[in-house]
């Protein structure tokens, strides 16, 4: 679509099981700043069924919320989400659309871009406005995190980007903010879904979710064998932390993929990140280097993880970690 008459910043507010995802608030926070710079409105679009706390989208910065509540949208059928989002965009013509670079966002937002024949930038970690040209500057890692690229979408609208979770900070809600929740009817006959969700199998092995954790303890190749993840779990328990992993243990089948931190796993940004027996390949760093404090424990003094670690201990993790657990438990 050509750029004439497009106005406003939109964010896609993703929900799962009726609950809004954290990334939905993060992009709302950045979307608010972009909308203010452009002097325009911020709108959140939300699809699902019986979604709790839709008003929180207003409290977190939206001027307007388009809500489609329908049982058919409860499990995020991608055919339906793509069709409905494209329809709303055609009707309302926003100049920018942001969505979380989650497994849902990265799978269905490209389809919306294809329907609308516009540009899309994947997995952005930086979003700014070129004030003169009023263009969205979309910055993203490429080549496995070795390079950064800034991308524009000059003529087509909307300018679309998926945004990496945990890059932008969620803002504190303001219960006094005023906004409008507009219920939109689901056009059932317009799109039919050819895919059907039959079942969901959860495989997070403990209770604290990686994305939400304030403290994460991750293990890497240095653990040597699957049983040794016990040690990581013990340290995590002593700290009230979630358990993460670099890619090699996941490849070896020591721990499920859902624990993987890095370029092809999750991006995390906890207050405290422990890397135990992790060398610090650029792909792993891409997923955790914005953590507030990073502790590295590795026997190789030249491991790149020490470059990003706030504090590093060069030593055998099988010696260091038990000492650490002991010390934490004693106090």
């Amino acid at each position: 679509m050509e750029s004439n008459g497009y106005q406003g910043v939109w964010t896609f507010a993703e929900q799962r099981n009726g609950k809004l995802k954290r990334v939905s608030y993060e992009i709302l926070a950045r979307g608010r700043e972009l909308a203010d710079t452009l002097g325009t409105e911020l709108t959140a679009v939300c699809f699902g069924h019986n979604i709790s706390e839709v008003d929180q989208l207003i409290a977190h910065g939206a001027d307007k919320v388009y809500l489609i509540d329908d049982p058919a949208l409860a499990v995020n059928q991608e055919d339906l989400c793509a069709g409905e989002l494209a329809r709303l965009i055609r009707e309302n013509k926003p100049e920018i659309l942001l969505a979380g670079a989650t497994s849902l966002g990265r799978a269905f937002i490209p389809r919306v871009a294809a329907i609308l024949q516009t540009g899309l930038t994947a997995d952005c970690t930086g979003l700014d406005i070129d004030a003169g040209k009023k263009l969205l500057l979309q910055t993203r890692p490429t080549f496995g995190g070795n390079m950064m690229a800034t991308i524009i979408c000059k003529d087509k609208r909307p300018q679309m980007a998926t945004v990496r979770p945990r890059v932008f900070k969620k803002k504190a809600p303001d219960a006094n903010r005023k906004g409008q929740i507009i219920k939109v009817d689901f056009k059932k006959e317009a799109v039919t879904s050819r895919t059907r969700l039959l079942n969901f199998v959860e495989n997070i092995t403990e209770s604290i979710k990686l994305e939400d954790a304030d403290i994460i303890v991750s293990g890497g190749r240095g653990l040597g064998k699957p049983e040794n993840f016990k040690l990581i779990e013990e340290l995590a328990e002593a700290l009230g932390a979630a358990v993460g992993s670099s890619r090699p243990p996941v490849d070896e089948g020591w721990i499920p993929y859902s624990h993987q931190v890095g370029q092809t796993g999750k991006t995390v940004c906890p207050k405290l990140y422990f890397a135990c027996g992790i060398s610090g390949a650029v792909q792993h760093l891409a997923g955790m280097q914005s953590s507030e404090m990073i502790i590295a424990i590795n026997s190789d003094p030249d491991a790149p993880i020490f470059d990003v670690a706030t504090y590093g201990i060069v030593g055998d993790l099988f010696q260091v970690v038990p000492l650490l657990i002991n010390k934490l438990k004693c106090e």
Binding site: Q117, G119, Q289
Partner: peptide, 15 residues
């Protein structure tokens, strides 16, 4: 629709 206008190395914080 999109165009790369700049490429650069990531600013890796050294600690």
């Amino acid at each position: 629709a999109t165009k790369v206008i700049k490429i650069f190395f990531p600013n890796r914080e050294r600690r």
